[in-house]
């Protein structure tokens, strides 16, 4: 459903992403891994539209997203979380969700009455999301008053509030302990069971290997492997990229 075709992003002479093609199927958890600086975050930013690609296209369910602005892609069903959490700290927990739930409906005609509608943060959808994220008791607190773990849950809930087809999780386990990682794995499965396709960008190998249906590996902006967790783990290029065999590294740099 989400297809990247020959996607590249060059910053001056740096080929941050270089000719990556990927197809993510409906309903799967797809892991995107790679060493630091391999182009994972740039790929996410190309999908969400922060960057315009140097070459290539991004399509969702056959619709070309490549020329769309970020908020338009959100309306099309692309949502994300950030590696460093980005919440609306001055808004309450429920308001964070309300904003995301209604962001993409501005384009309707007669948007003004809708915009001036008050109290929408008490809708049943938002209640359900708050319960799903175990944030119900905090709904009227400012988001900046939450604990780190709660902030992570709220950020994921906010992404879900925009009713996405595909959710991009950018290192959701960053700063979390191993036990938190276990809980996170369950949460990601729960998200998938709500009918949302998940693209997981992650460093924590146990997490990615444990829950991904398929995995792609990036190194120096190129895709070096794709397949099931077992296939990827057995791949010699991947081992070289991660374990840093000197010989292999040089080969990759010069490739």
């Amino acid at each position: 459903m989400l297809t990247l075709e020959n996607l590249s992003k060059h910053f001056g002479g740096v080929h941050a992403v270089d000719g990556v093609s990927l197809t993510i199927h409906e309903g799967e958890i797809f892991g995107l891994i790679g060493p630091n600086g391999s182009g994972k975050s740039t790929t996410v930013n190309l999908i969400t539209g922060l960057y315009a690609p140097t070459t290539g296209t991004v399509t969702l369910d056959g619709y070309d997203l490549t020329a769309m602005a970020q908020h338009e892609r959100t309306a099309m069903g692309v949502a994300r979380t950030f590696q460093n959490i980005r919440l609306f700290g001055n808004l309450t927990v429920a308001q964070n969700l309300w904003v995301a739930q209604n962001g993409h409906e501005q384009r309707r005609a007669h948007f003004l009455p809708r915009w001036f509608k008050a109290g929408g943060e008490h809708s049943p959808d938002i209640d359900e999301l708050l319960k799903f994220s175990r944030l119900h008791s905090k709904r009227d607190l400012p988001a900046s008053a939450l604990s780190f773990g709660e902030m992570r849950r709220l950020e994921m809930a906010r992404a879900l509030a925009s009713n996405p087809r595909v959710l991009l999780l950018d290192e959701p386990a960053a700063g979390a302990s191993l036990e938190d990682g276990q809980l996170l794995a369950e949460r990601i499965r729960d998200v998938r069971d709500r009918g949302v396709t998940v693209l997981l960008i992650e460093h924590m190998m146990e997490l990615v290997m444990g829950i991904s249906d398929r995995i792609a590996v990036l190194n120096f902006g190129r895709k070096i492997a794709e397949g099931s967790p077992a296939e990827v783990q057995a791949n010699s290029d991947v081992r070289a990229a991660y374990l840093g065999s000197k010989h292999k590294d040089e080969e990759l740099i010069h490739a």
Binding site: T48, F88, V99, R107
Partner: peptide, 19 residues
């Protein structure tokens, strides 16, 4: 609220669908 999301975090506002 949309106005305040812009002063809070512009990037998050964009991906939350705010124009």
């Amino acid at each position: 609220l949309h106005l305040r999301t812009l002063s809070d975090n512009r990037e998050a506002a964009r991906v939350s669908g705010v124009n």
